[in-house]
Deep mutational scan, measured.
Amino acid sequence: MIINNLKLIREKKKISQSELAALLEVSRQTINGIEKNKYNPSLQLALKIAYYLNTPLEDIFQ
Rank of each mutant, 00 (worst) to 15 (best):
A22Y: 09
N37A: 09
L53Q: 00
L53M: 06
L43F: 12
G33I: 10
A50L: 03
I34K: 01
T30M: 13
I60H: 00
L47I: 12
K12Q: 13
L43D: 07
N54R: 08
E58F: 08
K14Y: 07
I9P: 01
N32T: 10
I49C: 02
M1H: 13
I49L: 06
K12I: 11
Y51P: 00
K13E: 06
K14W: 06
Q29E: 15
K12T: 10
E19M: 12
L23R: 09
N40C: 15
D59P: 01
K36E: 15
K13C: 12
I49H: 00
E11V: 09
L47K: 12
I2Y: 11
K36A: 12
Q44G: 12
Y51S: 07
L20T: 02
E58W: 11
L23V: 13
T55W: 05
R10G: 03
E58G: 11
N40L: 15
P56M: 07
A50R: 02
A21P: 00
Y52L: 14
I31L: 14
K7A: 11
L45G: 00
K48H: 05
Y52M: 10
Y51A: 09
L45A: 02
E25A: 12
N54I: 05
I34D: 01
L53T: 03
Q29A: 14
N5V: 05
N5M: 06
I9H: 06
N37M: 13
S18W: 09
T30W: 10
L8Q: 15
L20S: 00
Q62K: 11
K38D: 09
Q44W: 11
K38N: 11
N40G: 12
A46M: 15
E11H: 08
K36S: 13
E25L: 11
D59L: 12
I15L: 13
S27Q: 05
G33P: 01
K12R: 13
L53K: 01
L45S: 01
L57R: 03
Q62H: 11
I2H: 10
E19C: 09
L45C: 06
N4V: 05
K48Q: 08
K13G: 04
P56F: 06
N5E: 03
L43T: 07
K48C: 09
S16P: 05
I15H: 03
L24R: 00
N32A: 15
T30E: 08
Y39G: 05
I49Q: 00
P56V: 05
L6N: 03
Y52Q: 07
K7Q: 12
L45Y: 01
S16K: 08
K48I: 04
I3R: 14
L47C: 14
I9L: 09
K14N: 15
E35M: 04
S42K: 06
E25Y: 09
I9W: 07
N32E: 15
L23A: 15
L6D: 02
K12N: 11
I3G: 12
L43E: 08
A50E: 05
D59S: 09
A46K: 15
K14H: 13
Y39T: 09
E25M: 12
E35N: 00
L8M: 14
Q62V: 13
M1F: 13
L57S: 03
I9T: 05
L6P: 01
L20A: 00
Q17V: 14
R10I: 04
L47E: 09
L53W: 02
R28H: 08
G33S: 15
I31T: 01
Q44E: 14
K38I: 14
L53E: 00
D59M: 13
M1Y: 12
D59A: 11
N32Q: 15
N5Q: 06
K13Y: 10
I60A: 01
P41R: 02
V26C: 07
I3N: 12
L45M: 08
T55M: 10
I60P: 02
E11N: 08
R10P: 01
L53Y: 01
A21C: 04
E35V: 01
L47W: 06
K13M: 13
K48D: 06
S27Y: 03
N37K: 10
S16M: 04
R28A: 13
E35L: 04
I60C: 02
E25Q: 15
K48M: 07
F61R: 02
I34H: 01
L53R: 00
A46V: 06
L6M: 10
I3L: 12
K48E: 06
N32H: 12
K38A: 10
I15D: 00
V26S: 01
A22E: 12
S42I: 04
L23T: 06
K7P: 04
N32R: 15
N5F: 10
